Simulated assay, not measured.
Amino acid sequence: MITPALHITRQDGAASVELRGDWTALALAECGRAGELREAMRGLDGAGAHGATRWSLAGVGRLDHIGAQLMWQAWDGKLPLGIEVSAEQRRVFGRIMSLRPDGWKKHVVERFNPVTLLGGSTLSLLAQLVSGVTMVGQFTFDLLRFARAPHLGPWREISANIYSIGYKALGITALVGFLIGIVLSYLSANQLRTFGASLFIVNILGMAVIRELGPVLAAILIAGRSGSAITAQIGVMRVTEELDAMRVMGISHGFRLIMPRVLALAVSMPLLVAWTDLMALAGGMLAAHSQLGISAAFFLRTLPDAVPVANLWFGLGKGVVFGMLIALVACHFGLRIKPNTTSLGTGTTASVVTSITAVILADAVLAILFKDIGL
Rank of each mutant, 00 (worst) to 15 (best):
L79M: 14
T53A: 15
M246S: 07
D363F: 07
D12H: 10
R38L: 06
L99F: 11
K105M: 14
A25I: 13
L57V: 03
T122M: 14
G293Y: 11
P304L: 06
A296F: 13
T140M: 14
I360K: 10
R91H: 11
A27I: 04
Y163N: 05
A310V: 10
E39K: 15
W155D: 00
R20F: 02
A282S: 14
K106N: 07
H65G: 01
D12C: 02
D142L: 14
A245V: 15
G119D: 10
P260A: 06
M249V: 12
R148N: 04
G347V: 01
F141E: 07
G51S: 12
V216N: 02
L221G: 07
N161H: 09
P150G: 05
V216K: 00
D12S: 09
A229G: 08
P4T: 03
A310W: 14
T354H: 06
V248H: 04
A49L: 04
V352H: 02
A14S: 05
H7W: 04
S164V: 07
I258A: 12
D45C: 06
A87N: 07
V321C: 09
V309S: 13
S185F: 05
G250D: 00
L278C: 12
D305S: 08
A174V: 02
V133Y: 10
G206S: 08
A58C: 05
M285H: 10
A296Q: 11
V307W: 06
L126Y: 14
A49K: 08
V273T: 11
A14L: 10
S355F: 06
L312T: 10
S268F: 04
L272W: 09
F333Q: 11
A364Q: 12
E84F: 02
I326D: 09
T342E: 12
I204C: 01
A223S: 11
L123P: 02
L37F: 06
R247V: 04
P80L: 04
L44A: 03
R261H: 08
L199F: 06
A358C: 13
T349K: 14
V262I: 08
T240D: 04
L263I: 13
L361S: 09
I180G: 02
H332Y: 11
V136Q: 09
V17D: 00
M135A: 07
A25C: 13
R211H: 08
